[in-house]
Simulated scan of single mutants.
Amino acid sequence: MDHNQHQSGTGSFHGINADARILKITGWLTGIYFLVELGLGFYSQSIAVISDAFHTFSAVGGILIAFIANRISGKAATIAATYGFKRAEIMGALLNGVFLLLMAIYVLYMGYMRLGKELELPTGIMFLAAFGGLVTETISFRLIYKSQKTNMNMKGAYWHIMQTFVGSLLIIVAALVIKFTGYTPIDAILGMVFGLVLFWASYKIIKDALDIFMETVPKDVDVEKVKSALLNIKGVKSVMHLHAWTLTSNQNIFSAHIQIDDMQQSETILRTAESLLKTQFEFYFSTLQLETEHHDMGADDLNIVS
């Protein structure tokens, strides 16, 4: 006997639309600020400000990737894509993770190349560009912060905004140090420190995305506890071919073969099992096969031996 269990989650249509609106607003804010900062850079002939403007432009690209992935993920399931296109969000997160990794390498390289070089940095323009960035980035932070906690795609966009926000803070700190001490290498040193932070953030995003594509057990799921809970249901003899994986952010999937004593008790056992999986372990979707005897499916290599 098979059973499919559905429940709504954060990947719902309304959630996708809300995230899309947030990405649109943050994208426009960041894009407009990029043009303003680029104009200030060319006006002052400041390489530092021009470089930060293109740094901001990279965030626009990251938000655009997240937005496209968000729109694709909202498409309904089809006969050719029976799970729909939900994994597009994870693909967007992976692309943004790689994008952030490249940015981290670039920032580290630029910082290293600038060490030991005496640069003429116009602190007035640096302050103006940085404060403008802090305003737009703070607004974007407030919009995206809640969504990024539970959505990997939004987390990728969040870290792009984070890099521009911290970049603006570093410009202010560097400008203050240069203005009062004349120590210009501080610009490169602070940039390299943040490059390491970006490297760590990109690693986390890439690893989490690859874990989902490899269909590893979700971090918030203890397979042994799930199996034990199912075995404690009256009438259940054994649980085999147990599988748990993540479809997309906050949507964990579960399947298993459950051997029972009496098929006449199947409906009661099934309702108990599905309620347990939904309420206690918060699975978004599950498929259970009940049987009185174990059938050799020819896929014992996929069965967990514990």
Rank of each mutant, 00 (worst) to 15 (best):
residue 84 G to A: 08
residue 14 H to S: 14
residue 44 S to H: 03
residue 63 I to Y: 00
residue 19 D to H: 02
residue 61 G to M: 12
residue 123 T to F: 10
residue 23 L to Q: 06
residue 115 L to D: 00
residue 108 L to V: 09
residue 48 A to V: 13
residue 58 S to P: 11
residue 25 I to Y: 13
residue 107 V to P: 01
residue 62 G to A: 05
residue 110 M to Y: 03
residue 136 T to P: 00
residue 49 V to R: 11
residue 130 A to Y: 06
residue 125 I to D: 01
residue 139 I to E: 00
residue 18 A to G: 02
residue 124 G to M: 09
residue 30 T to I: 10
residue 56 T to K: 02
residue 82 T to P: 04
residue 135 V to W: 05
residue 32 I to R: 06
residue 9 G to K: 04
residue 131 F to N: 00
residue 17 N to S: 14
residue 139 I to R: 05
residue 142 R to S: 06
residue 143 L to I: 04
residue 64 L to K: 03
residue 78 T to F: 10
residue 9 G to F: 07
residue 105 I to M: 07
residue 125 I to R: 02
residue 121 L to H: 03
residue 12 S to D: 15
residue 141 F to M: 10
residue 64 L to E: 01
residue 34 F to W: 11
residue 19 D to E: 14
residue 12 S to G: 14
residue 63 I to W: 02
residue 116 G to A: 08
residue 107 V to C: 04
residue 25 I to S: 14
residue 72 I to T: 03
residue 108 L to S: 07
residue 134 L to A: 05
residue 73 S to W: 09
residue 11 G to P: 05
residue 138 T to I: 04
residue 138 T to S: 15
residue 59 A to V: 01
residue 30 T to S: 15
residue 55 H to M: 07
residue 67 F to L: 15
residue 105 I to E: 03
residue 127 F to K: 04
residue 125 I to F: 04
residue 62 G to Q: 03
residue 54 F to H: 13
residue 28 W to V: 15
residue 72 I to L: 12
residue 78 T to Q: 09
residue 64 L to V: 14
residue 127 F to C: 02
residue 56 T to G: 04
residue 115 L to R: 09
residue 18 A to I: 13
residue 11 G to A: 12
residue 38 L to P: 05
residue 74 G to K: 06
residue 67 F to W: 15
residue 93 A to C: 08
residue 15 G to A: 14
residue 59 A to P: 00
residue 64 L to G: 07
residue 137 E to T: 14
residue 126 M to P: 09
residue 106 Y to M: 10
residue 58 S to H: 13
residue 106 Y to S: 12
residue 21 R to I: 14
residue 48 A to Y: 03
residue 95 L to F: 14
residue 14 H to L: 14
residue 67 F to T: 02
residue 110 M to S: 07
residue 28 W to E: 01
residue 57 F to I: 02
residue 59 A to R: 01
residue 130 A to M: 08
residue 80 A to F: 13
residue 104 A to E: 08
residue 99 F to W: 13
residue 93 A to R: 00
residue 140 S to L: 00
residue 62 G to P: 01
residue 48 A to S: 14
